[in-house]
Simulated scan of single mutants.
Amino acid sequence: MIALLQQALANRTGLLDQLHNENTDCYRLFHGTNEGCSGLTVDRYGPQLLIQTFHQSISQTDAEQIQQAVEEQLGKPLQLVYNDRSQKNSRRSDEQRIDGQEYTGLELGVSYLVKGKHQGQDPLLFLDMRAGRRWVQQNAADKSVLNLFSYTCGVGVVAASAGANRVLNVDFSTRSLDVGKRNAELNNLDRSQIEFFQSDFFTAAKQLAGIPIKQRVGRGRKPKPFPHIDEEQFDLVFLDPPRWAKSAFGTVDLIRDYPSVLKPSLLAVKEGGQLVCANNVASVGLDDWLDVVRRCASKAGRPVRELDIITPESDFPSPDGKYPLKLAVLQF
Rank of each mutant, 00 (worst) to 15 (best):
Y27G: 01
P319G: 11
E71P: 12
R85Q: 14
I309R: 15
D291Q: 10
G39Q: 02
L124N: 03
L208T: 14
A164C: 06
V293E: 02
L5Y: 08
R91F: 09
V304L: 03
S298N: 07
Y82H: 10
L125C: 03
V136C: 04
Q65L: 12
C277I: 07
D288M: 01
V81L: 10
S199W: 08
S247H: 00
N23E: 05
G180N: 11
R130A: 15
A248V: 08
L80R: 06
S192M: 07
N187S: 01
L50I: 06
R28D: 14
K76H: 15
L307K: 09
D291G: 00
F234N: 02
P242D: 08
V293H: 09
E107K: 03
Q207S: 11
D43Y: 09
D17L: 13
P227G: 03
N183L: 12
R302M: 15
T53H: 04
G105W: 14
V329E: 04
Q60K: 08
L146S: 01
G154M: 02
Y112Q: 14
L267Y: 05
D171W: 09
R182T: 09
F196K: 07
D25C: 06
R175S: 04
P303M: 06
N183P: 11
A69D: 04
L78M: 12
Q73V: 13
P77D: 05
F197M: 14
A141C: 10
N183E: 06
L124Y: 05
K246M: 00
V281Y: 14
L177C: 14
Q68L: 05
Y45H: 12
F234E: 04
Q119G: 07
L177N: 10
R256S: 08
A328P: 07
R295N: 14
A3I: 11
D142C: 01
D62L: 02
L146T: 00
V217I: 14
R12I: 02
P77N: 13
Q101A: 12
R92M: 05
I194F: 00
A160N: 00
G180C: 15
